[in-house]
Design a binder for these strands. Structure first.
Lengths: 180, 180
DNA sequence: ACGACCATGTAAAACGTTACATGATTTA
DNA sequence: TAAATCATGTAACGTTTTACATGGTCGT
């Protein structure tokens, strides 16, 4: 099986929800789907060019002379078709590399203090993540109710919340367990 | 910040627990830590060579003339030092790309049947994973009690079990939710 | 004797991050 | 007017997968 470029499909998925430029795509990923996806600018801009030259997205025509430098893209019918096709036919792959679990699993090699400091830093990160998720949850209930994607976002958000709570519980436990 | 080669440290971590050859390292990863880590042969063999030439691991001297083709490695003192140093000083990074959540989040573009089929396949995978985790749990209690890594394995395993159960619950819910 | 698994490796191609480069616009 | 943020992009480098290549060993 050849390697598929997942970045392509991520950008198609995002543009299927809303017209955006590259910079906004990055912000969207960071603020909304960073829980399960990440992309860097070094991937986003070249991929946008490729998608455009393949006819899967197109630049939105500018209504006025402003925003000369802003390149806002929209997904095309062909793009939607390709997205659907990939989603329906590709097998789900799992490439796991979780450095938190790595450090706990091989934790014997670290001084307990250093391990604990890293665990506490993860705890803080997860607290912030949870706060952000609760904001997204409210936004979803108020502003995005009845959006065609709403039920899918709801399900994803629910997973994210439970996952983050599990992390918080477990990290606390690890922190206690190693300070004996 | 330059990019660190995480494969190196993974192999050092594994060899800190037991002498092994490349093939066994792969099996170990698949059977024991696939929950949070993965490596391919294309990474393992070249990395073993590099680690050896850097003096972080060494080939175990063969006691008899057999096993000419088997290259069993052991971690050196320098290797242990480098492992400890990396673990204590590196920041934990998160490069998330979860294709299950991707497919649910952008699930509107799939026919409900196709999405459900993929979710059911994930359910099966998680059931198998859970069964495997329970086997590991028993092994840990019986054969590996009092091993110096035991408490760290216990914590990691506990996370894996809770995570897998969360997955099973959530996947069932997704499956119900999309067949309306 | 056949298939499954053990065992080691390389090469090509693709993927992805990071740092760099540049400049406009907005906000305090 | 300075700082922050918006905005697009490229180049170098390193990482990772996949496919290929080869041959040994073990069980049935």
């Amino acid at each position: 099986m050849k390697r598929e470029n997942k970045t392509q499909f991520a950008l198609l998925g995002i543009l299927s929800q809303c017209e955006m430029n590259g910079y906004e795509i990055r912000k969207y990923i960071e603020s909304t789907i960073s829980f399960f996806w990440s992309e860097s600018f070094g991937q986003i801009y070249p991929t946008l060019k490729k998608l455009e030259s393949d006819g899967l997205i197109q630049e939105v025509e500018k209504t006025d002379g402003n925003d000369k430098k802003k390149k806002v893209y929209r997904i095309t019918k062909l793009g939607l078709k390709e997205l659907k096709n990939w989603m329906e036919t590709s097998n789900i792959q799992h490439h796991k590399r979780d450095e938190v679990l790595f450090k706990v699993f091989f934790g014997r090699h670290m001084s307990p203090n250093r391990l604990d400091a890293q665990i506490k830093s993860e705890l803080e990160k997860n607290k912030k993540d949870l706060a952000q998720l609760l904001i997204l949850k409210k936004e979803l209930l108020n502003e995005w109710a009845n959006h065609p994607d709403e039920r899918f976002w709801q399900l994803t958000l629910e997973y994210a919340e439970k996952q983050t709570k599990l992390n918080l519980d477990w990290l606390s436990k690890v922190s206690s367990a190693i300070s004996d």
